[in-house]
Amino acid sequence: MQSRPGIRPRRPGMWAIRGPLSRRQYWLFAALGLLVPLGLWWVVSSGAAVDKVFLPGPVDVFKRLVSWYAEDDLLSDMGISIYRVTTGFLLSAVIALPLALMIGTFRPVQAVLEPLTDFIRYMPAVAFIPLVMLWVGIEESSKISIIFIGTFFQMVLMMAEDVRRVPLAQVEAAQTMGADKGETINLVIFQAAKPALLDTLRVTMGWAWTYLVVAELVAANSGLGYSILKAQRFLQTDKIFVGIILIGLIGLVMDQLFRLAHRKAFPWLYLKS
């Protein structure tokens, strides 16, 4: 496009390829992205043609949220679910981290563990439920086990990849400064991989939540996933909605907490240029 005389070239608009977007505009669009579906939902559900059993409106869902909170101990359902997800996730992270460091650092460990992990990771976690019930029983530990199985194997592989991505020059520089194996792993490889590892934790935390409902299939009598399943039996569609939305919100909050931790822990990645 030719610019006309007297007219200064304008800065690229937001629709330029990878164009700029101000903070205010960003939040405006973000709000739009949330409010439009909400509005659509409200409009569709308030039409006479739609039975509340199939699609309860936002107001019904909100009322159910309040009554669940007031009469049905919503907080303890949330609490137990958060406990299960967090425990399964942390257990997985604590075991995956050292393994991933070893896989990403030593080729023999990689050769022994990676194909095996790759194989197990394709087995559906849900299919392990009968085995878990047989081996672990139907206590809390069984639900935590399912979440563990669902997240652990993916987590190990992703973390090992994070470790492998540490630039070789960083490792070799340490070696030529006299670092031994332990120091190279602790002071360089682990430190260099940390930001990527925390990102992997954030992503896998989301997966842990997706296995919650599955986990609470196993003889649970509390929790958000269990409540959703029970509500299905009684056709309480509004309660199913509350459960799903709450799981989404808790996931969103945790995701944001991970992002905040990332910014606090690794300030050099967030410098303004």
Partner: peptide, 27 residues
């Protein structure tokens, strides 16, 4: 000691800490 073409500095350490890195080693 070896100096590489690039990517050898430790981005999580400030300049001074990078220079003093060898002081952290047992050696």
């Amino acid at each position: 000691a070896m100096v590489f073409q690039h990517y050898s500095l430790y981005p999580w350490l400030r300049v001074m800490e990078n220079i003093k890195f060898s002081r952290r080693l047992k050696h």
